[in-house]
């Protein structure tokens, strides 16, 4: 999530190429851009490429930034494009047109009804739990993952997510719901299997 800095960035200074102000901008937004890359590409090297390419591109066009959207939205838009370009290069088999694809065919119906929501935090956020979560996020189709990362991971509003991705707000809401349900289903399957495993272990210990 973008943290508000003690002092607002000055668009005027940024447009004029003030290097100290640009350095502040880079520090303020490199976290969200890096994490977007990491979530979309799934590895640190590619996330670093997204990070560098995003800011190279942003610096090249900073003087033309008109401020119609917020600086954050503008940077997210560049980062999303850089991430998609890299996905296209790294995984040519993935259909990038997915990003604009119709959402109607995605599965919505829940199949897993194990209530794991009451499990303790240290179980859910254990190394294993976090790995399961990361892997579940990686199974999201690109079009859902991008929306999910911006909205739920980085905390952008529906409107800013829509602006950054060139989608309608309705479209963002639809994708967000599908992404959330997809992840829920994956995690539920993981915790269902895990609890069965633990029950089996208990039985074996008891015998």
């Amino acid at each position: 999530m973008v943290n508000p800095t003690s002092q607002e960035l000055s668009l005027e200074k940024l447009r004029a190429g003030d290097r100290a102000e640009i350095a502040r901008m880079v520090d303020e937004f490199s976290g969200p851009v890096y994490r977007l890359g990491l979530r979309m590409l799934g590895n640190q090297q590619d996330a670093e490429d997204v990070l560098q390419n995003t800011f190279m591109n942003a610096l090249m066009h900073l003087s033309e930034f008109e401020g119609r959207s917020s600086l954050a939205t503008w940077l997210y838009r560049i980062a999303a494009n850089e991430a998609l370009m890299l996905i296209r290069r790294r995984k040519p088999e993935v259909n990038i047109e997915d990003l604009q694809a119709d959402d109607s065919d995605a599965e919505l119906t829940p199949h897993q009804f194990v209530d794991w929501s009451g499990l303790p935090e240290d179980e859910l956020l254990s190394e294993e739990g976090k790995k399961a979560l990361d892997e579940a996020i990686q199974t999201l189709p690109q079009n859902l993952r991008m929306v999910f990362v911006m909205r739920d991971v980085e905390g952008l509003s529906i409107k800013d997510t829509a602006d950054a991705l060139g989608l309608t707000e309705t479209n963002v809401k639809t994708r967000l719901l599908r992404a959330r349900l997809h992840l829920r289903e994956r995690l539920s399957a993981y915790y269902a299997e895990r609890s069965e495993h633990l029950i089996r272990e208990d039985k074996n210990d008891g015998s």
């Binding site: 929501s117 739920d152 992840l183």
Partner: peptide
């Protein structure tokens, strides 16, 4: 109820 609780929890986890 389970779907609601586990969806909420999923969102909490990624925002942790």
């Amino acid at each position: 109820r389970v779907v609601l609780n586990t969806t909420k929890r999923t969102i909490d986890l990624v925002q942790s």
